[in-house]
Design a protein around this nucleic acid. Structure first.
Length: 271
DNA sequence: AAAAGCCCCTGGATGC
DNA sequence: TGCATCCAGGGGCTTT
C-alpha cells in the first residue's frame, strides 16, 4: 500500500498532535518484521519530539532514542483519543498523554523498531542504503542520470529498488513512467539525459499530486486521522489494463516485472 | 557490485 | 457452499 505519498500523508495527519506527548505505555500483538524485544519498556516515560520521514519509513524522535515505523504492504496508523477496541490486525499501540497511536497491519510486513540513535546497527541497515529523497533539492537531474547509467536492469525495477531514489512504489513507478513517456522495460542505462530529466520531473509531479490527493487507497489505506486517499481516481495507467489510454485511446497493457504488475500505454510509451 | 528470486503473511476475488 | 489458485501500495536476504 503505502508509498511515499501515503507515508507522508500519514505523517502529516498526526505529527502535530503527537509531538510533545509523553508515552504512558506500549503494547505489541503479533510479531511484525522484527521482534520488538525490550523496546516497549524503553518507550515508557519517553517524550515524542517529532516525526520525520525517510523513504517509506517514519522516524519518531523521542527524548531518548527513536522509533522506526514501516507500514509494509498493508499497514496503516491511527491516532486519536477515542479509538475503537483493538482488532485482530492491530499489532502495536502507544498510549500517550495526547492520544493512542495504533498500527493495523493484516499482512504484518510492516515494522516497528526501536533504536538508541539513527546510527545504531539496525537503523543503519534499514536506512543506510536508501537513495535520494525525490521531493528534495538533492534529487537533481545530473545525479539521477549518472546513477541510472550504472544500472542495466529495467527502469521500472530500478525505481522500485529504492537505492537510487526512494519512495516510488509499484503504483507511482508505472504512473511516473507514463507521464515521462518511457517504456518500463527500457534498460535504465539507456535513458538519455533529456529523458532522465523528464522522468525526474515526472516522479516529482506524480508524487506531489498524489500527496495532494491524500495518497491512493486501493483497499485499506487511510491516514492517522482515518481519511482515505483519492489518487486512485487520477491514475492514468495503474490498474487500468485493457481500458483506453486517457491521452491516445490505446488499450493499456499489463506485464509482469519481477513478480509485480506493470501498466503502460504501448503507444505513449513506445521506447 | 549488480541482478534475480524467494520469502514473510492474510484476505479478497475468481474459477471449478 | 467448498476448495484451490492467484493476486495485492514492500523490501530484506540469499544466491548467482
Amino acid at each position: 500500500m503505502p508509498e511515499l505519498p501515503e507515508v507522508e500523508a500519514t505523517r502529516l495527519s498526526f505529527v502535530d498532535r503527537i509531538s510533545g506527548a509523553g508515552i504512558v505505555s506500549a503494547w505489541c500483538g503479533k510479531p511484525l518484521r522484527w521482534p520488538l524485544g525490550t523496546a516497549p519498556v524503553r518507550l515508557v516515560g519517553r517524550t515524542v519530539r517529532g516525526v520525520r520521514r525517510r523513504g517509506k519509513y517514519l522516524l519518531m524522535d523521542l527524548d531518548q532514542g527513536l522509533l522506526l515505523l514501516h507500514l509494509g504492504m498493508s499497514g496503516s496508523l491511527s491516532f486519536g483519543a477515542a479509538l475503537q477496541p483493538r482488532g485482530a490486525h492491530d499489532h502495536f499501540e502507544l498510549l500517550t498523554s495526547r492520544g493512542t497511536l495504533r498500527l493495523n497491519d493484516p499482512r504484518r510486513f510492516g515494522a516497528v523498531v526501536w533504536a538508541p540513535d539513527q546510527d545504531a546497527p539496525l537503523a543503519r541497515k534499514l536506512l543506510g542504503g536508501l537513495g535520494v529523497e525525490p521531493l528534495s533539492e538533492d534529487f537533481d537531474a545530473t545525479g539521477f542520470h549518472a546513477a541510472l547509467k550504472t544500472r542495466k536492469s529495467a527502469i521500472k525495477q530500478v525505481l522500485l529498488v529504492g537505492d537510487v531514489v526512494v519512495g516510488v512504489g509499484n503504483i507511482y513507478a508505472s504512473e511516473a513512467l507514463f507521464l515521462a513517456g518511457i517504456r518500463p522495460t527500457l534498460s535504465a542505462a539507456r535513458l538519455s539525459r533529456p529523458r532522465a530529466e523528464k522522468l525526474r520531473a515526472a516522479i516529482r509531479e506524480v508524487l506531489g499530486r498524489a500527496l495532494a490527493a491524500g495518497g491512493t487507497t486501493l483497499r485499506n489505506y487511510s491516514n492517522a486521522a482515518g481519511e482515505r486517499g483519492n489518487f486512485q481516481f487520477e491514475a492514468q495507467v495503474y490498474g487500468r489494463e485493457g481500458q483506453p489510454c486517457r491521452v491516445c485511446g490505446t488499450a493499456i497493457k499489463a506485464i509482469r516485472q519481477g513478480q509485480r504488475a506493470t501498466f503502460f500505454c504501448p503507444n505513449c510509451q513506445k521506447t
